[in-house]
Design a binder for these strands. Structure first.
Lengths: 347, 347
DNA sequence: TTGTATGCGTTATCAG
DNA sequence: CTGATAACGCATACAA
């Protein structure tokens, strides 16, 4: 590539002049070149090469009203609690998909409640064409914002106020089949001959936690309430919940934890109490979290969800919407992706 | 905030009209309002409120030649190998700093070598005012790119190529004191009475690995070469290196691993061999990685580096440069940040 | 198929 | 202190 000339960068005007055509023709070539005679296309392309011309995105956006960028909104607490691997994999999936469509990823991290004003201004400002947002809590202000500014948005994880069956409520989301996955986990424990199966739930203001608890109940219709403890998706919370469960139900012979982190906490407590896993107590987690499930001792049987795939799906949904929307606010449909039980040594 | 009127968003023109002033005056008020009579400022502010006016960033960028955005470039291999926690913490630190300066974060993930063309076009296109890049390898094409397009850039981690002496062509980076940290780790092992101290190095095409090895050698001037093994910063690599070391030097009584992940791999091998930690072999890691060092069994003594702080520093350096550069390409200075030994049960 | 002319929404220059 | 007015770089409707 040619060196950047000092001062002004070459403009389309310059390219046109050098190629001996009008600005309009040059523009057409730069944007695909349909309906331009081949030899002119060639001439313009050469000029572009020689001058090292790169379109000015601001100018382009000004007239097309399209930025070619998408915002990814992630709430801080989320990235801390769910812990990092999630975050990275989601971003990776989204990035791949966006890159393939020549779209840029603008990252918006929400630190505290006050940041939502900033987010709203940003979205309203038209910096981006659409947005992707993750794991909202029930009282999250984001949906109101995106609706107000008319920003096409796809959510990762079913928002708290959205119905389980997609399509309604005007929200699009991509979510794992948390409930189905939980059912499979519990059935697996039953298959192993376990009869006193406890559940360590996640914080119940998150739909993923609620759905997993529901799945547990689907299978264990008459589950003893004493067998259910609420954790917070952290290892410490899982340990605490496990301790409580052992106190209330010393006879439990299996535990289904709503995520792997809590499962490791439970594991630690079980070990401290001298209970063998899976000998005395079988244990199943959820997520198949990198660096956690597989490296636990014993490695965790868990329910895998394809984080990266889900993230890609979110981006695809959004991009598709943007492609045809172009003004009318179309709402993409929601998708629920399957989960898979991964058997390891903890059961 | 007012509803978004359908169709056109309100423009500065509309605000001006409503406030009964000229577009120029309205613009002044929107950008701070110095040198405008108080009561006019008031009038314009009201109009902005009532209309729900938000400046059009594209139009603004077109004339100011400033985008208010910064690119963060991360190479895929990096985010996979160093594993995720790093990535998240760096992003978090950068995001905080940029947000505080009303600057947006555009994430550029590099999947494969071919992506560098895309990156170059993006950078050359003037989408962003500056760039932050992480942990380059010696043969990384990025520095050539940023220099060619004249993009102010701050690197995270000392780049592998020899620093050019003199202001021109100099690179700015922020790095932890890897060498000093390594020295401290090894000295700590010596203080514990260890005499056969091995080192599991990282991949030596990364400066962090080289610097840590250098630190090890600083203290153990006459170190037996057989006590040094090269890993790849993964747990599996660490295990393999540990196995090799034990083969060559069954009498070793301590290991300094160049990162925590490798240390956990080493830990596993030691346990399999029936060697007690720290009884038979003391172990020190590096990074103080979340979810790794502290939750290892036993918890790892390690060298902490302030990832988030370093990331913030990178952003600060860049922003400062952008503020005054405004045309002339000023090169920010580099910074090396201190590390701290964190004592846990593995020593 | 190609060129001409216009406008996108702001900021900056320069009179007044 | 304020108001016209000229860029900024590009895409596109329309004319040729």
């Amino acid at each position: 590539m040619p060196e950047q000339l000092p001062g002004h960068r070459p403009t389309l005007e310059a390219v046109a002049e050098r190629a001996g055509v009008s600005r309009a023709t040059a523009s057409r070539v730069v944007n695909g070149g349909d309906g331009v005679r081949a030899h002119l296309v060639e001439k313009v392309r050469e000029a572009v090469q020689e001058l090292g011309y790169v379109p000015n995105p601001a100018a382009r956006t000004l007239v097309t009203r399209r930025t070619g960028a998408v915002a990814v909104i992630i709430a801080e607490p989320e990235i801390r609690i769910f812990s990092d691997p999630f975050f990275s994999r989601q971003i990776r999936g989204i990035s791949k998909e966006l890159t393939a469509h020549d779209t840029q990823l603008v990252l918006l991290l929400v630190e505290d409640r006050g940041d939502y004003d900033r987010i709203e201004r940003y979205l309203a400002g038209g910096h981006v064409d659409g947005a992707l947002a993750f794991s909202l809590h029930t009282d999250d202000p984001l949906p109101a914002i995106t609706r107000r500014v008319g920003m096409p948005t796809v959510y990762g994880g079913r928002p708290g106020w959205a119905p389980v069956s997609g399509g309604h409520g005007g929200v699009a989301y991509v979510d794992a089949d948390n409930r189905g996955g939980a059912r499979e986990a519990v059935r697996h424990l039953l298959d192993q001959g376990r009869r006193r199966i406890a559940h360590i739930a996640g914080p119940l203001d998150q739909t993923s936690a609620v759905d997993r608890l529901d799945g547990y109940r689907d299978v264990l219709l008459d589950a003893d309430p004493a067998l259910i403890a609420e954790g917070d998706f952290t290892a410490a919370g899982g340990a605490e919940a496990m301790a409580g469960l052992l106190e209330r139900c010393p006879d439990l012979d299996a535990v289904f934890a709503a995520n792997d982190l809590m499962a490791t906490g439970a594991l630690r407590v079980l070990r401290e109490r001298g209970l063998a896993v899976p000998g005395d107590v079988a244990l199943v987690g959820f997520d198949d979290a990198e660096l956690v499930a597989e490296s636990a001792d014993p490695p965790l049987t868990t329910v895998r969800q394809d984080i990266e795939g889900m993230a890609r799906l979110m981006a695809q949904l959004l991009l598709r919407t943007l492609d045809k929307a172009q003004g009318d606010r179309a709402v993409p449909a929601s998708v629920v992706t399957p989960t898979a039980l991964v058997r390891r040594a903890s059961t």
